[in-house]
């Protein structure tokens, strides 16, 4: 099981949950499992073509994983991902 930390703006979608659990061997697979379990959240992770939305990032082992890297980024059982967004500005 992988723990995924949910950013504050998405907690309106997860019923307030700060951490969700999902399964998968890569970051993308974890997101796919999240989308299956939480369809409303899935709308925010994947676009019409099942691509991970381009400005989503996540932190894994202190490394910032960009959307295009998520399918190839392996995760191990028990690890944590921090779902985030490339925000800028005030």
């Amino acid at each position: 099981m992988i723990r995924v930390r949910v950013p504050p703006v998405l907690r309106a979608v997860t019923g307030g949950a700060r951490v969700l659990e999902a399964e998968g061997g890569t970051v993308r697979e974890v997101f796919e499992d999240l989308a299956r379990k939480h369809p409303a959240l899935g709308l925010h992770l994947f676009d019409e073509r099942s691509g991970i939305r381009r400005n989503i990032i996540c932190v894994h082992r202190d490394y910032v994983v960009r959307a295009g890297e998520m399918a190839g980024r392996a995760v191990d059982e028990g690890e944590e991902l921090i779902l985030a967004n490339a925000f800028a500005g005030g």
Partner: peptide
């Protein structure tokens, strides 16, 4: 419509 997390409807 969030620039990162896309559009949705509440």
């Amino acid at each position: 419509a969030n620039d990162v997390f896309g559009p949705a409807i509440f």
